[in-house]
């Protein structure tokens, strides 16, 4: 069952039979998904599964070999770059080195698709920037150089830039990379609180389980399964795709799957002995 088939709510984004080949190599094959408006979809999978490639197709940086991507029912291939950027904002995993630029200037970059030549930054824009900075808790760092911010603050500044972009859909490529657990939770909760549709590739399965409405599990460029965290995150599937033994239990706070990993027992070893459960016991 795909996410697209799970409900009758209007879809913010729908992808059907998406494939992308790089030369002879198939990077993505036959991926379909649907994202209901205001929901958060987590893309999970091992390294090299094609998570970033899928996201790059979604924000038009890569042109897929086949398949269709629709944003609110409109094929994104027909949407001009500027108009597309007014609807979709992206936060990437690596923050590049910037020339001397203050946090405010970085956040103001979110205005780029909304402005024409010679358009200045109006008082309303300045208020939007201040509001976005307040929302990510960086008002006190507004004048500080972006380069001097900590990893978590940089990520929050980039999310503030995305807020200023006023998107209908927010795409995040491993937004919690290199962050400590406090910032990981803080950033994903912040993104959730925006109330817009979100697609994020996430490595931490417990975070993905706790904060996403639905998940899409990728492996070797193919969609293994998609649906609610309960449906996607099973012990057997995690063992098959990630090659690790684990136990999945309901989280004591929110009831969504909570994964506990076992060390020294890879899935292959476990299969060779008495089976996963015996190995755990």
């Amino acid at each position: 069952m795909t996410v697209a088939e799970t409900g009758t709510m209007p879809l913010a984004l729908s992808v059907s039979d998406l494939s992308w080949r790089l030369g002879d190599k198939a990077i993505l094959s036959g991926i379909s998904l649907g994202l209901t408006q205001g929901q958060m979809l987590g893309i999970i999978g091992p390294n090299g599964a094609g998570k970033s490639s899928l996201l790059r197709c979604l924000y038009k940086f890569i042109r897929p070999t086949s398949g269709e991507i629709c944003l609110h029912g409109m094929d994104i291939a027909g949407i001009a770059a500027k108009a597309f950027a007014c609807r979709v904002a992206v936060v990437q995993q690596d923050t590049p080195h910037y020339f001397d630029m203050s946090t405010t200037q970085l956040v103001a970059m979110g205005l780029t698709p909304h402005k024409g030549p010679f358009d200045g930054t109006s008082q309303a824009d300045k208020a939007d920037i201040a509001q976005a900075l307040a929302r990510v808790g960086l008002s006190h760092k507004a004048a500080q150089q972006y380069e001097h911010l900590s990893g978590g603050e940089k990520q929050r500044a980039l999310i503030a830039r995305a807020i200023v972009q006023r998107p209908q859909l927010l795409i995040l490529d491993e937004p919690t990379n290199h962050l400590d657990i406090r910032y990981q939770i803080q950033i994903l909760e912040l993104v959730r609180s925006l109330g817009i549709s979100v697609i994020a590739s996430i490595h931490d399965l417990n975070l993905a389980s706790a904060l996403c409405d639905s998940l899409l599990l990728l492996d070797k460029g193919r969609c293994i399964v998609s649906g609610t965290p309960d449906l996607v995150l099973t012990e057997q599937r995690i063992a098959e795709v990630f090659g690790v033994c684990c136990r999945v239990q309901p989280h004591p706070q929110h009831g969504k799957p909570l994964i506990s990993y076992f060390y020294g027992y890879s899935a292959a070893t476990a299969a060779m002995t008495q089976g996963t459960q015996d190995a755990i016991d």
């Binding site: 790059r56 924000y59 038009k60 940086f61 770059a81 500027k82 108009a83 597309f84 950027a85 007014c86 979709v88 904002a89 992206v90 990437q92 590049p96 910037y98 020339f99 630029m101 200037q105 970085l106 970059m109 979110g110 205005l111 780029t112 698709p113 402005k115 030549p117 010679f118 358009d119 972009q165």
Partner: peptide, 21 residues
């Protein structure tokens, strides 16, 4: 006239693309 787009390039080609450049 192109100052915003030029400044967006500082964030990298891919980010500039996502800003409509």
């Amino acid at each position: 006239a192109l100052k915003r787009q030029i400044l967006a390039l500082q964030a990298g080609d891919e980010t500039a693309h996502t800003l409509g450049v």
